[in-house]
Design a protein around this nucleic acid. Sequence first.
DNA 1: AGTGCGGCCTGTCCGC
DNA 2: TGCGGACAGGCCGCAC
Length: 271
Amino acid sequence: MPELPEVETLRRGLQTHVEGRLIRSVVIRERRLRWPVIPELEDILVGQRIHTLRRRAKYLIFECNRGSLLLHLGMSGSLHLLSQNDAPAKHEHLDIFLDNGYLLRYRDPRRFGCLLWTADPPEAHHLLATLGPEPLTDKFTAEYLQARAANRQGPVKPFLMDNRVVVGVGNIYANESLFLAGIHPARSIREINLHRYRLLVEATRATLSKAIAEGGTTLRDFADAEGRPGYFQQSLQVYGRAGQACLHCGHSIQIRVIGQRASYYCSHCQS
DNA sequence: AGTGCGGCCTGTCCGC
DNA sequence: TGCGGACAGGCCGCAC
């Protein structure tokens, strides 16, 4: 399941092969994604040059001459660079043929991802316009979190996973960050003081940075642009470890649904 | 305006 | 061993 570190890992892997390249042709085999792929997309893309490959939240943004291609990997999406004679397999919905001999192929079995075109600045697109700050920028601070918590209520974990609050923190990294910060996932956001929000900001940053450095988390079939798996799953402290001993204190890791998501925590280390 | 929940999908896993 | 059903999970968009 690609979260921010996975998308960033992918972006870094693709960047040098994609930027400056001309799109020679485009083949779309399945248009029924999270939103239907517009019928004009092939015609729009062919002949354009990809100037930059950026990331905003979990969206990859291919900035071209006349606009931007926005790509979200959803739950199960992946992108691979292949040679241009590679035959497509099941669930491989899109091919973008570049002028350097490479083929950029999008695969997404569950089709929760999307493929959008916008002629406007990407950040103005309605799906990106309401997104919160990037967690690895200086806009993500304890003061900011506390201010955002002031006019709402509820447990901290769904708060941390809310894209309007901060982007890129999915279920795995929310669990890990809260463990690292020593904050219980069900703790009310109003009960967390500035000091503990500082711990949470630092923990979130540290967790995401470490995951990026280790190439993302490979739970099922995540792989980077060249098909290599990530290694962060070896660093997971609580996620998926229900019933196992806490690596810090030895107490049993608990699992409980909070905000409709499986939440893993140590009731001894987190309060 | 903030909060909660249904729904979109398929691969995987569990129990019978 | 085979099969059905539950589950996972990002996140939008609607209902309250």
